[in-house]
Design a binder for these strands. Structure first.
Lengths: 338, 338
DNA sequence: GTGAAAGCGCTAACAG
DNA sequence: CTGTTAGCGCTTTCAC
């Protein structure tokens, strides 16, 4: 016996297909009595709507737009690759990607303002923290477009959700690892960041210092390097710090430019314990050859999947759990590389 | 402009719908010339088949059966819960779960033999390693049913794939963590297993000893405890070992019965570094209160998703990458608990 | 308030 | 080899 259809329900309830459809989709214009008769029939038959048929008949393709910073940031390029890869496979949704100059809030605001609500039903945006962006985002929401922030949040804006990892938690995790890796060897810890003006970096640092101070007080944290995610600057600045402080036992690199970390450490013994962010070809290699101890990453694929399904739910007006969109933090050592 | 359909392709190529359908589904009976004409039209229009429509028209619901060990194993019960949860939501597939007595190969073989190939198109089975099971599995394959092993593999059987984590890699990861956590404090390491007769346990031990011996030779590994995944036995045996050897610096619990580990350690100082498997309410609590340092887990949800999509692909005769089915190993510290 | 009928894009017989 | 013709289960006008 195959699954009951609305025909079966209609017959059982003694009504027409349209009426079943009305109660199924909670449309108006059904008498209370009929409505409950149909509901009863559905329950009795164990009716489950066939979504394939529904979406076929409905023939509405949501169009979602992802706005990402351009440039050479390998994480963002990875996201973009994942996005175009999925775009081909996705069924009921159309995905589009737009890139804007990185760290340029005016450009981002302009891109948001250009979104045509007739064409685009939902937007996922890697936000930069600024008033013009907040305003543009609010405008977009007023036009009825669903909006989520991705990777980097914009709190106290009208974005409906954030999709990404908890960066404070990421910093805490890094501290947990690095602290344990250095246990029994008191010394200095270096934090290598891109810029404290970027929200995720600031949050990672915060979490890191929270845990390290509380649980590994024997370690002394040096003021964070802000190397603008540029591997040459990282190599130079970190190299200088390591020269100056021979007692550095741990390094936490919480931004990009990670190749510079490996370069600065090359040839030094004993090698400080090292935890970095993002799994790239280089960090993977560094993990394998033992220059890095652990890599923390956020998974492209899950981030995209979460953003899409969240936007779909928001557009459909379905309820969304507040915790949806939170991506887990992944920890990789040499031995559990994917 | 909406997506082109097979109608558009048919018109553009000057053929009928059926012909388009034939080349679309790589059926036989189309002249080479027509076939390439249609293919060209598809490419030109950027045709993408609407899977919803296809699966609606095809109206074939794959039925997949999951065979799991029964009993109180909390990992298995979690899997089962995940399975029934998904079963409701799944669209084009029907999921069913059967449980068999744990560690009972005859019962498992019988269950495999009972599968009706007319009803069930694919089977995912948590295998126990035995000849009767291999034979029953081969029979099932002969009937045309797709078969994958889940969680615990059965190599050199006719299962088409394995879905689960790489247990050797899990053991290596544990050693990487535990070794680093204990660095600078030479001493003894205890392995707590369920039974070395179970394949995944044996593999985890193997990977663990590989890495620990090679990279942390200052640590001495005690012979593994085999506590049958029973928390009382674990507590008793591990307690005895800890009494006998005050220099135990690390514990690796690679099976179940993890609550016994926490009980055995209660009140001892300094607490050995501890890495365990599977994230349960108890291991989570132990992580939070600091009795465990890390938990390694395999994700129910991903395991189920991978098994389903693999079976679907196998049934549809689609190509499957050999690496599909490999689930990543997740590492949790107190600070990145989901 | 309710029902009839015409599709959505694709597949599956069955004819040619 | 190729085309015609009914649907799949649901939504959507448009009548009544």
């Amino acid at each position: 016996m195959s699954r009951p259809t609305i025909h079966d329900v209609a017959r059982a309830a003694g009504v027409s297909l349209s009426t079943v459809d009305r109660v199924l989709n909670e449309r108006t214009g059904v008498r209370q009595a009929t409505q409950s008769r149909v509901a009863a029939a559905m329950r009795e038959l164990g009716f489950q709507r066939n979504l394939a048929a529904a979406s076929l008949a409905r023939r509405r393709q949501d169009r979602l737009l992802f706005i990402l910073p351009g440039g050479s940031n390998s994480f963002m390029r990875g996201l973009e690759r994942e996005l175009t890869r999925k775009a081909a496979a996705w069924e009921f949704t159309q995905l589009e990607v737009a890139t804007v100059p990185p760290f340029d809030d005016a450009a981002l605001a302009a891109a948001l303002r250009e979104v045509d609500p007739a064409q685009t039903h939902g937007v996922a945006v890697v936000a930069t923290d600024s008033a013009v962006v907040r305003a543009a985002l609010a405008e977009l929401r007023d036009k009825g477009v669903a909006v989520v922030t991705l990777v980097s949040d914009l709190p106290s804006s009208r974005r409906q959700h954030f999709v990404g990892i908890d960066n404070v938690q990421a910093g805490r995790t890094a501290a947990s690892l690095l602290g344990r890796f250095c246990r029994g060897r008191p010394g200095r810890i270096v934090i290598v960041a891109g810029s404290m003006l970027v929200r995720d970096h600031a949050e990672r640092r915060l979490g890191f210092e929270q845990v390290l101070r509380a649980e590994f007080p024997e370690q002394q944290i040096l003021p964070p390097l802000e190397a603008l995610d540029d591997q040459d600057i990282v190599a130079a600045e970190l190299g200088a710090v390591l020269d100056r402080h021979p007692d550095v036992v741990g390094i936490y690199s919480l931004g990009a430019g990670t190749r510079g970390v490996a370069r600065a450490m090359a040839g030094r013994t004993p090698r400080p314990a090292t935890v970095v962010h993002e799994l790239t070809a280089h960090s993977r290699q560094a993990l394998l050859d033992g220059s890095f101890d652990a890599v923390i990453r956020q998974d492209h694929a899950r981030e995209v999947a979460a953003a899409v399904s969240l936007l779909q739910a928001l557009i459909a007006g379905k309820p969304v759990e507040p915790e949806a969109g939170r991506i887990g933090i992944e920890v990789f050592l040499r031995d559990n590389l994917p």
